[in-house]
Design a protein around this nucleic acid. Structure first.
Lengths: 343, 343
DNA sequence: CTGAAAGCGCTTACAG
DNA sequence: CTGAAAGCGCTTACAG
């Protein structure tokens, strides 16, 4: 698109009058549709440019009922602290992806009050968007409310146990399974897990992947080594460490691995010499921690790409259900695991 | 707003027909305007609720030419790495503030290609927004282009030397002045500055605040102690440290202070015992650094609040110029400065 | 207190 | 190849 004078308020009608044609012809020309001679089309485009014409998306919206906006809703509790890095990267990637479809994302931080009071975003009540991407675990009650919304929606990075809504999730189960296998491969046979199994489905699934690895290797699950890291509402708590510790811990996320490493050091343990620790996410905490964490990298960009593709497809009426799509992560090896087979 | 059945496609006309009145009456009632009896007004609101009516902002936009969206443009180079924390917090606060005015923010990451090719955001060409907040230093050429846009705009966290556009900036000058005074107060008389004076106006202004403090205390400026931290395009470079070092450094931002501290440690210096270091911004780097940095806290929220207030005011036609508004920061004392007067 | 008419800027049939 | 008419869902004068 060109520049010209950069005046606002220029409409197709203005261009039409200057050229002595109808605004229908202008519309066709500017949208590269059939029914206008090439010569006229060129002339129109050139003049539009010179006059600084800018397309009025609102008028188009009025006609077809589409706003070309998607709401991206992030619960407030994920928007602060260090997890913000993940969400900001995700949101940025979403913005980029939306461009490909001629869409725009409008971010909405869902306040904890609104979530508890079961208040849907104003974006919804004002018909500002054609659909929603919900990024980050919502309360079950809020999920029910969301389901009632007569509007396309996709869950990103979490899912609903009752499964009616399309979700894009990281492959928590196999990610945790893989990294636990990795520990076993390094000779570890007493392995703990850090995470509150009742806090989010991610934590639960990662636990189950960890457990699957134990089962496959005929390693008994030791309940003492399942360490709670947060309460049910997600607030971190002080670890309650048992007397006897395993040789390795699988943590449900890098941040918690970071906290655990610091705690272990404070208690006089060396990482990884005495105890190995692995994380999940490969976020900023993985490289802030000393030693740097071996962890599972979540492929945010791929997840977002899929979520955006899905929501724009659903908006265009292809409203069939896709269920859960999980995107594979991969192990990133750093310095927080000791090879017990060596020496 | 109520819930009801959550059907879409309900219009005022639908409500009107059910009640045997005109849609004008529905409009008046729902907007709490005069000209409808209270009884009818209540009845209408109740029915709208029950029918799951949702207001169509697009139609309103069509009438008055306002989209109720503001574009928030962030140059790509600030959107990655650790500076993202600042920008995300700023964007979040902006989103929150916009709500107060019935506005929404649409974030646009300005790619480096688009900035160089002088391509304005598509948001502009599609009339998706009523105005722009530009968050983070733009190239002079792009600034010129922005000025040509016939649309309200506010610069946030930087300004144009030629001063025609309203800007909200942190008080770089006095912030650097204050923290340099603080160092002098602790007995330091040989003080360096870290930053490329030609990279951004913030770095320049912080330098000048530092310089003012030196002047006031009759401390000569030593050119050898002005350390370049990045090239003109903002890319960090390896510090070129002189043989003889001062007892303290004022860094133009926390990230650079972080890099400097690590470099000094590597060279065998202790911080703050041998050399004191102060930063600017109070971002994540201030507390990641060991020792934690004494720095100047930028009041992001206040800056954003002012920027949002300003742009919404300008959109409503009050298009007078406000010039630069600088928001005061404050010194946050931590462990990176040695008191030379002690002992 | 209530409503018919016109209009915001486009696009979609449809007619010529 | 070109255009008159109708309509998207509201709101703004204006008339009754």
């Amino acid at each position: 698109m060109g520049r010209g004078d950069m005046k606002s308020n220029i409409t197709m009608k203005d261009i039409a009058e200057k050229l002595g044609v109808s605004s229908v012809t202008i519309s066709k020309a500017l949208n590269d549709k059939d029914g206008v001679s090439d010569a006229l089309k060129e002339k129109i485009k050139k003049l539009a440019d010179e006059m600084g014409y800018r397309y009025n998306t609102t008028a188009k919206s009025m006609k077809n009922g589409l706003t070309y906006n998607i709401g991206v809703v992030i619960p407030e509790r994920f928007s602060g602290g260090m997890s913000q890095s993940f969400y900001f990267r995700a949101y940025q990637e979403a913005a980029k992806q939306f461009e490909r479809y001629g869409y725009y994302g409008i971010m909405n931080i869902l306040s904890s009050e609104d979530e508890e009071a079961l208040r849907l975003p104003r974006l919804y009540y004002e018909k500002k968007v054609d659909g929603f991407i919900f990024l980050g675990q919502l309360s079950p009650e809020f999920i029910s409310l969301v389901k009632e919304m007569d509007m396309p929606k996709v869950f990103l990075d979490f899912y609903d146990e009752h499964d009616e809504i399309d979700s894009i999730i990281t492959d928590n189960f196999y990610g945790a399974y893989d990294i636990t296998n990795y520990l076993v491969g390094k000779g570890h046979t007493s392995i703990g897990y850090v995470g509150n199994l009742y806090a989010t489905s991610s934590i639960q699934d990662r636990f189950l992947g960890y457990y699957k690895s134990l089962l496959e290797h005929r390693i008994a699950l030791n309940e003492d080594w399942i360490i709670r890291d947060r309460d049910e509402r997600g607030k971190y708590i002080t670890f309650d460490l048992p007397e006897a510790l395993p040789t390795a811990f699988v943590c449900n996320c890098d941040q918690v691995a970071h906290l655990l490493v610091n705690r272990l050091k404070k208690e006089g343990y060396r990482v990884p010499e005495d105890i190995s620790v692995v994380g999940f996410d490969n976020d900023i905490y993985a490289t802030i921690t000393e030693p740097n964490l071996t962890t599972v990298e979540v492929d945010i960009n791929e997840m977002v790409t899929q979520a955006v593709k899905l929501i724009t497809r659903k908006v265009q009426g292809k409203n069939k259900s896709y269920g859960r799509t999980s995107v594979k992560g991969k192990i990133v090896t750093r310095d927080s695991v000791l090879d017990l087979r060596q020496g």
